[in-house]
Design a protein around this nucleic acid. Structure first.
Lengths: 362, 362
DNA sequence: TTGTATGCGTTATCAT
DNA sequence: ATGATAACGCATACAA
C-alpha cells in the first residue's frame, strides 16, 4: 500500500472559497449556474476558478449525488469474446454518446474465465455504475435475469425471452434471412443450408426462424440435414460445410451465422472442387472487413454498428434518468451487401431489390 | 434531472452497525481484517454482513482513500481508431489484470472527432482515474507530453521521443523488419519496397529503420522510390502498390506496415497480372484474422497482444503503487508467421530459422 | 444575495 | 477491544 507518486495537488472548493473570501456554498452555486448569486460575484468566482485551474472532484460529486456517472459494457463471455471488429465499433459508438453526457464507460468482464454475471453483480452491489449495456444476449441470459430482478437500468444488444420487460436494440435477423432465403428459392435454389453456431445466442434463433419460415412459405421441404449448429468460427464453418457437401443431395446455397463461419465454408467449398459464388452460394452476416477481403468477396448483412452503439448509450442514459425501460425497443433492419459469393441463378435484378430490405436508421 | 428508477436500497455500514448494536468503527474494522477486534465480534459481524448482503459502497471508499480504483485506456484517435482486432484483444488482456486488483477499466475518447488529449485532461483533472494506458504512441505524442508534465502515472504501448522517462511496452518492429529484409536480400531480392502509413506513429519509424539498416548492411542501395507513406488501410495499400508496380524497376518484395495495407497491396499485385507470393513477396504486420483468410494467405508478424495487455495493466498498477516508472520498459520481439504471400527465392530453409527471431514472452 | 450546518458512506485517528 | 469524532470534497436545505 505504498503511496502514489502522483499527488493530486489541485485546488479544491474550500481553497477556492478561502482565496476569494467567500463561503464554499456561494462558490459552488456560482460555478453551478444557480441564479441566486450576484453577477459580480459569479464573475469573480469564475475568473478565479479558471486562473487557479479548479476542477470539481468527480469522486466527491459522485458520492454526494449518489450517481456513479458511469455505464458498464458487459461482453458476452464466449470465445471470441470480442468478436472483432463488431464490438470495437460498438464501443466507439457507446463512448461517443456517453462522453457527451460526461459519463464514463467501463469495460467489465473481458476474460472468458470469469462469468459475466459475477462482473454484473459486483458493479451493481458496489454502486460502481448507474446502468449497463449487455452485449449479444442469450435466449436465456443470466445477466438479464439478474438485472431485471434488481430493477437495475440496462439495455441489451439483442433480444431474449424476457425482452418485453426491458430496453433493447436488435438487428432483424429473421427478416434478413427470410428475405435472403426467399430470394434464393425464387432464383431456383431448392437445397438451402443453414450453418449456425452456439444456439444459446438469441440471434441464432431469429435468423433460423426467418430461414425456415421462408422455406415453409415457399413450399420447400425443410431438411434437418441441412441445418447445423457447429459453425463456430472459421474451422467450424469449414467442418460443417464439408459435412453438408458429403450429403447425397448437397446444398446449392449456404446461409452462415457469421462472416468467419462463411469464410470457413467457402474454403471447404473450394476444397471440394466447387466454386463458391457459382456452384454454391455462400452468405455471411455482420459484414466484417473479412467479407470484403475474401475471394470471392463475401455477401453479407450489415448493421450500422457505431450508430447502434450510440443509440444503446442514449437509451440507457434515458432509463437512468427515469424514463420507462419498455419504451426503448428498436428493431433495426440490416442492409444486404451484395458481393460475389452468392448468385441468383435466374435473376439479373439488383439483389437489393430482390431482398427488398430497407436500410437501417442511423 | 429525474430520479433513477433504481433505488440503491442496499444496507450500509451504519445500518449494519445499528442492527448489531455496534459502532460503525468496529464493524468496519472487523470487515477489513484488523486484528484489534475480538474473534467473537468479528464472527458476528461477518455473518450479519453476509446475511444482509452488505457490500461497501465503492464511491465512498474511493473518496476516502483518494483513489479512483480505475485505469483509463486512451486510444489513438486515428481512423481506424480501434484497429481491430488488435485493440479488442488488448482490452481483454488489460481488463483481466485490472479486475484482478479490483480496478475498473474505463475507455476514453472513442470518437475521432474529439482529440484524445482532451479526454486525458478531464480524467486527470477530475480525479476519475489513477493511471492510464496509452494506445500506439506517436513519435511526438501530446498525451505523453501532458502526462509527463503532470507526473501522472501512465504506460504506453509503443515508444516515443520521451520514452526514456516513462514506462512502455513495445513490439520490436526494427528487429522484425531488419530480419525480414535481410532474409529477403539473402534470398536474392534486390528491389524491396516499404509501404508505410501515418508517419506520426513511432512504430512506423522503427520498422522503417530496421528495413533501411538491413539494406545498408547488405550493400543494397536505398531507393526513395521504393518507400511510400500512403498505405492507409486497404485502399491506400492498393494505391501505393500500383504506383510501385509502375516503376521502371518494380519491387520484387513489399513490406507493409499492417495486414490491411498488405491485403490491398496483394490485390494490386493480382490486378497487375502478377502473383503475390510468387512474382512479388508481400508481408504484413499484426497477424490479424485477415492474414490467415487472405489468398494467398499473408505472412505477418504477431505479438501476443492479450499478454501485452495484461503486462501493461500490471505495469501501470505497479506505478500507481509507487514504483519508479522507468523501471518498466519492455521490448517484445514479435513472431514471424510464415504463410504463402512471401517466398524465398533461393532458400528452402524454414523461414523462422532464416529470420532468427525468438518468440515473444507471455 | 450569502453563509451555516448537515449529509453522502467510508476509513482513520484518537480516546476510553 | 470498542466507540466517538473527524475527514474526504462537494452539494443543498435552511437560516440570516
Amino acid at each position: 500500500m505504498a503511496v502514489s507518486s502522483f499527488r493530486g495537488r489541485r485546488i479544491d472548493l474550500k481553497g477556492l472559497a478561502r482565496t476569494l473570501g467567500l463561503s464554499v456554498t456561494t462558490v459552488s452555486r456560482a460555478l453551478n449556474g444557480y441564479d441566486d448569486v450576484s453577477p459580480r460575484t459569479r464573475e469573480r468566482v469564475e475568473r478565479a476558478a479558471r486562473e487557479l485551474g479548479y476542477t470539481p472532484n468527480a469522486l466527491a460529486r459522485r458520492l454526494t449525488s449518489g450517481r456513479a456517472e458511469t455505464v458498464a459494457f458487459i461482453p458476452q463471455a464466449v470465445e471470441p469474446c470480442f468478436e472483432s471488429p463488431y464490438v470495437a465499433e460498438l464501443l466507439v459508438g457507446i463512448g461517443e454518446a456517453l462522453h457527451r453526457s460526461n459519463f464514463d464507460l467501463v469495460l467489465a468482464g473481458g476474460s472468458l474465465s470469469d462469468d459475466p454475471l459475477a462482473a454484473c453483480r459486483r458493479l451493481v452491489e458496489e454502486g460502481r455504475v448507474d446502468g449497463m449495456i449487455l452485449d449479444r444476449t442469450f435466449v436465456d441470459d443470466p445477466r438479464v435475469a439478474y438485472l431485471l430482478d434488481q430493477r437495475f437500468p440496462f439495455v441489451t444488444l439483442g433480444r431474449d425471452r424476457w425482452c418485453a420487460r426491458h430496453a433493447w436494440l436488435d438487428s432483424d435477423g429473421e427478416r434478413a434471412f427470410y428475405a435472403l432465403t426467399r430470394a434464393l428459392v425464387r432464383a431456383g435454389h431448392r437445397r438451402i443450408a443453414f450453418i449456425g453456431a452456439d444456439p444459446r445466442f438469441n440471434f441464432l434463433r431469429t435468423r433460423e426462424r426467418g430461414y425456415r419460415r421462408a422455406l415453409r412459405e415457399a413450399g420447400v421441404g425443410w431438411d434437418p440435414d441441412l441445418v447445423r449448429y457447429d459453425g463456430f468460427s472459421e474451422g467450424g464453418g469449414a467442418e460443417a460445410c464439408r459435412a453438408l457437401l458429403r450429403l447425397a443431395e448437397p446444398p446449392t446455397a449456404i446461409l452462415c451465422i457469421e462472416d468467419l463461419t462463411a469464410l470457413g465454408a467457402m474454403q471447404a467449398v473450394w476444397a471440394s472442387g466447387r466454386r463458391p459464388g457459382w456452384d454454391v452460394a455462400v452468405v455471411g452476416y455482420n459484414d466484417t472487413p473479412l467479407a470484403a477481403a475474401a475471394s470471392p468477396s463475401l455477401s453479407s448483412f450489415r448493421l450500422p454498428v457505431r450508430a447502434a452503439g450510440r443509440r444503446l448509450a442514449d437509451m440507457v442514459l434515458a432509463i437512468v434518468q427515469g424514463t420507462p425501460a419498455d419504451r426503448h425497443q428498436e428493431l433495426w433492419v440490416p442492409q444486404f451487401i451484395a458481393r460475389s459469393s452468392h448468385h441468383w441463378r435466374e435473376e439479373r435484378e439488383a439483389p437489393e431489390r430482390l431482398l427488398n430490405l430497407p436500410t437501417a436508421p442511423g
